[in-house]
Design a protein around this nucleic acid. Structure first.
Length: 405
RNA sequence: GUUAUGAAAUGCGC
């Protein structure tokens, strides 16, 4: 709650307190985490004007902020700046940088960074390796991800529960559930206690390969070992049931979670609605929507998009477009997924003119289409027989740096 | 007292 934090800061100043580095760093960090880098830099200036010198913690927060927003270049600029000032970078500095390069998938840079930290006498810790391993997992390079575990063991760094959860998650995403389970047992052998995230990851993995019964067994196993399932755990399971077309089971779990005081959130509701959408059961989809509103949950963009997608899939494109109004009057702007859904809906019902109108509306709203959005419109042009236009659009997407898939 | 890491939902032809 940054606004409340600012209010308190104002109150401090009013009462004559002098703000120190701790106070400023807390604020800078909060802004950086919220992706508000401009304001963070403003606060940095306030610090300097107030006669304070930003310290390592301040710079670390900035590096973290730039890394989070994918601005690696700026992150390294701050890093170089602090090195030039003679400040010694610490494990947090490198952790934030590592997080940045890894999230950007720049694996070679990540390797160089590890060398750089060793050069500066900073020993990579479990978090450094965690970022590295997660990046390999995100790329689906599970061999490299597993090698990270071996590498850290060689360097005497002990994997923790979070590290194992990442590795297990990567294997789950590639469907390698046997290896995932082996790692779970490896954790237990090492006296590491899997937590709710570890179990949820595995449950989600089994759901993804359509093995709901294993997923349910893992749920009872986690409860037996004293690990409490949370909303995410149940949402994953409900999602698995929905994908398997088991709506009755999904609803049972939906009721069950509430009996143990777990409140369904936007994600839970959207999963259920999507289940009904895939079953082409719009009546129940809207019933769940009404239920969620009644229970005080505010529908988010995904929930609206899911309903819009359902209406398109059932040939009710005009009604789908009709949801744009109530959506906006509820303070939610349609995003590029909303438009892709509607454009595809119109193209499928051979109403290319409306599709094109929506495309223009989307661009006018400042939304950036992605490959799927282009695909939807390309499809429209092609079934219109406007191959020339399609090729032109294809060139356009490549020119603005979107790779055709 | 302030700084780095992990899990779930929606869209694109066949």
């Amino acid at each position: 709650d940054l606004e409340e934090a600012f209010r308190l800061k104002g109150e401090m100043v009013e009462r004559g307190f002098v703000l120190d580095n701790f106070t400023y760093n807390t604020i800078v960090s909060g802004l950086c985490r919220a992706n508000r880098m401009r304001e963070a830099n403003g606060v940095l200036n306030d610090m300097v004007e107030g006669g304070l010198s930003p310290d390592l913690v301040t710079y670390n927060a900035l590096i973290d902020g730039y890394s989070r927003e994918g601005n690696i270049w700026k992150a390294f600029e701050v890093y170089n700046g602090l090195v030039m000032k003679g400040i010694k970078a610490d494990i947090h500095t490198y952790g934030a940088l590592m997080n940045g390069v890894c999230k950007a998938g720049k694996m070679e840079e990540a390797r160089i960074l590890i060398k750089e930290m060793l050069l500066h006498g900073v020993i990579p810790n479990v978090i450094s390796y965690h970022s590295l391993c997660k990046a390999y997992c995100d790329q689906g390079n599970m061999e490299a991800a597993i090698l990270v575990r071996d590498e850290m063991l060689e360097r005497g760094v002990t994997p923790d529960v979070a590290f194992y959860s990442v590795l297990i998650g990567g294997l789950c995403k590639t469907g390698e559930m046997e290896t995932s389970m082996q790692l779970l047992h490896e954790m237990l052998d090492k006296r590491l206690t899997p937590d709710e995230i570890t179990y949820t990851t595995l449950i989600d993995g089994y759901c993804r390969i359509g093995n709901c019964s294993e997923a349910v067994m893992l749920l009872s196993q986690m409860v037996e070992t004293g690990c409490k399932p949370n909303v995410v755990t149940y949402t994953s399971l409900i999602c698995g049931m929905c994908q398997a077309g088991k709506m009755e089971e999904a609803n049972k779990l939906f009721e069950e979670m509430q009996t143990i005081n777990l409140l369904p959130n936007e994600w839970t509701y959207s999963v259920l609605i999507n289940g009904y959408v895939n079953a082409r059961n719009m009546q129940d989809a809207f019933r769940v929507h009404d239920e969620l509103v009644k229970s005080g949950v505010i529908p988010n963009v995904v929930i609206w998009n899911t309903l819009i997608s359902g209406l398109c899939k059932t040939g009710r494109v005009a009604e789908a477009v009709g949801l744009l109004e109530p959506m906006q009057s509820n303070g939610l702007m349609p995003d590029y997924v909303t438009y892709t859904t509607l454009i595809a809906g119109y193209c499928k019902s051979r109403n290319f003119h409306e599709a094109l109108k929506l495309w223009n509306e989307m661009i006018n709203n400042g939304l950036i289409p992605d490959a799927a959005t282009y695909n939807a419109l390309l499809y429209g042009y092609c079934i219109e027989g406007s191959i020339g236009e399609a090729v032109e659009l294809l060139n356009e997407m490549m020119q603005i740096g979107i790779s055709p898939n």
